[in-house]
Design a protein around this nucleic acid. Structure first.
Length: 370
DNA sequence: TTGAATT
């Protein structure tokens, strides 16, 4: 009875593909109660009493026109015309959420089947499953660096249908950062995966992984954004410290010029690496330095400023509480050269920064776990 | 009082 354009079908399938497949194309109330067999969705009918999905909208209908049309029934809480992400073209359907469920019901009764241009629009309750479709995205950390995306999926697939997966890679080395994402079809699946896998060791792994719900699109606080401005070294810090650092560099130059051999553990690194022995603080890319007793508002720039004058600093990190974004009292600095790191530590350990006395040392494997 | 990581 209704001529359905290919585009609208595609749009509907896009919407449906986010949830369990239902064998009919009806979005009417019967579909909610009867046709979706998922146990999650049958319990949340309440959610859909104000929210409508409107299908078969004319191609040129705008969100404003949609809102205007449905707003004639009653007060609208929100209204969304779904568009193609790339072209911005209407996908021919949208959502209208009323304040009052009675208005939603009225809209179905009066607007469903309304002819607009060449279309006959369909108005029905939106699937109450949006909540189960959304928030099914997991953030996974502590993964073995050797784990592949396929292995990650294998691990999680026992809990449900995986929509997408990803392992974050270091942009330079291409090596896994041990962090990834799994998006499940449904939220319950994600919840089960958390129950089953959080704090568990994947087969063959030596450390347990962390599985939790991912944050929404990564929106950094303006504060975090600002601190990134300081990711480049800032080396104008006059005073005795800088002088000491400069003196050290001069010493190095003189030593090189006069052929003085300086001892450096770097010389034995190749051997110890082959033997599988870890040198504390040595991370392969440099020497990792632990800095303790930073102030809550400390940021990366202070680490650059303090350590930069002593030599090549490749990375600094202030460890922050995720929620408050305040420094947890410590941070890390990676320096390329052992000698420079050693002098920086000798110079900065016990250094008074504001009203705090810093403790600076090579990072150890210390953990407060038993 | 020795790591977070958010496509």
């Amino acid at each position: 009875m209704i001529t359905i354009s290919i585009k609208v079908i595609a749009a509907m399938e896009t919407q449906l593909s986010n949830g369990p497949t239902c064998n009919n194309t009806s979005n009417g109330p019967s579909a909610i109660t009867n046709n979706c067999s998922s146990p999650v969705e049958s319990g949340s009918i309440e959610d859909s009493k104000t929210n409508l999905i409107v299908n078969y909208l004319p191609q040129n209908m705008t969100q404003e026109e949609l809102k205007s049309l449905f707003g004639s029934i009653g007060e609208i809480e929100s209204c969304k015309l779904v568009r193609d992400k790339i072209t911005g073209q209407s996908l021919g359907y949208g959502f209208v959420n009323y304040v009052d469920p009675k208005d939603a019901e009225k809209a179905i009764n009066t607007l469903n089947g309304l002819r607009l241009q060449t279309k006959t629009i369909k108005v029905s309750y939106a699937r109450p499953s949006s909540a189960s479709i959304r928030d099914a995205n997991l953030y996974v950390s502590g993964l073995p660096k050797t784990m592949t995306q396929k292995e990650l999926e294998q691990l999680f697939s026992q809990y449900g249908r995986i929509i997408t997966s990803r392992i974050l890679m270091d942009q330079v080395t291409g090596v896994s950062r041990g962090v990834g994402f799994i998006r499940f079809d449904r939220r319950v699946e994600a919840e089960e995966a958390i129950k089953g896998l959080n704090c568990q060791k994947p087969p063959g792994a030596s450390e347990p992984i962390t599985v939790k719900f991912a944050n929404n699109p990564s929106q950094k606080t303006s504060q975090a954004l600002l601190s990134q401005l300081y990711q480049s070294p800032n080396r104008r810090y006059p005073g005795p410290l800088a002088q000491q650092a400069q003196r050290f560099r001069l010493d190095n130059l003189l030593n090189m010029a006069y052929g003085v051999k300086r001892f450096s553990p770097m010389a034995i690194d190749g051997v110890t690496s082959l033997a599988g022995i870890n040198i504390p603080g040595h991370a392969g890319t440099g020497w990792c330095i632990f800095v303790y007793n930073l102030a809550p508002d400390a940021d990366e720039s202070i680490l650059w400023q303090m350590f930069g004058p002593f030599g090549a600093v490749t990375n600094v990190k202030v460890i922050r509480d995720f929620n408050t974004n305040k420094c947890k009292g410590f941070g890390f600095v990676t320096m390329t050269n052992y000698d420079e790191a050693a002098v920086a530590i000798a110079s900065l350990n016990g250094y008074r920064l504001g009203d705090r006395v810093l403790q600076v040392s090579f990072k150890t494997n210390k953990t407060h776990k038993a």
